[in-house]
Computed example of a mutant assay.
Amino acid sequence: MKRIRPQMMGVDQGSKVLFSDFEDDGEMWTGSGPRKILRTIRFSEPFLTPPTVTVSMSMWDIAGESNQRADITAENVTEDGFDILFRTWGDTRVARVRADWLAIGEVQDDEMWDV
């Protein structure tokens, strides 16, 4: 369990369109087998230590004639940012995906002075 002093808790959040492959016949839309895409996210300001990050799909546009397979996660979390990894496989065809994310962790307390 991560414990955070209340006066030092910071929350950052955002939304990112990861890809829109139906527009240009990209691999997520036309391909088959294992496919993945990695997008780097930078926090609005750094945390003191790597925060806890959650990622979810807030929009997905996926073909309905095959199985709908998707995996989304936060990887490589640092004080400054992280990577969103989206994966699909088999005959799933994904036109586009938007991900929302939330980061919670310790930030610098402006009231603490280094004397």
Rank of each mutant, 00 (worst) to 15 (best):
E111G: 10
G105V: 10
V115N: 14
G26L: 00
G64S: 12
S66T: 06
R42K: 13
G10W: 06
T88Y: 04
R93P: 04
G31F: 05
F19H: 01
G10K: 03
T52L: 12
E23F: 13
A95C: 15
W101T: 00
F43E: 01
E45W: 09
M112P: 01
M8V: 03
V94R: 05
M9H: 03
G81W: 05
F82N: 05
R93A: 10
A74S: 15
I4N: 14
F82V: 03
D110V: 10
I104R: 08
L18K: 01
L102K: 07
V107T: 11
G31W: 11
L48Y: 02
M9S: 07
P50A: 01
E65P: 00
K16A: 03
G90P: 04
W101R: 05
R93G: 09
E75Q: 09
D100K: 13
T78W: 09
W89Y: 15
M28K: 02
R87M: 14
W101Y: 13
G105E: 04
V115Q: 13
L18H: 10
L38I: 12
T52V: 02
M28R: 01
P34V: 06
V94S: 09
M8Q: 15
E65G: 01
L48P: 00
T73V: 15
L18M: 08
W60I: 14
W101Q: 06
D114P: 01
M9T: 13
S56L: 05
M112W: 10
D71A: 15
T40G: 10
G90S: 06
P51H: 10
S56D: 00
E106G: 13
Q108Y: 14
L48G: 00
G31E: 03
W113A: 10
A103S: 10
K16R: 13
G26P: 11
G105M: 06
R98P: 01
R96L: 00
W113G: 06
T49E: 09
D21F: 06
M57A: 02
V17P: 00
T30F: 00
Q108M: 10
S58V: 09
I62V: 06
I72S: 08
L48R: 12
T54M: 01
T49H: 09
I62C: 09
V97R: 02
L102D: 06
P6V: 11
I41F: 06
W89H: 00
M57S: 12
R3H: 14
G81K: 02
E27F: 11
T92R: 08
R39N: 15
I41T: 02
L48M: 15
D25K: 03
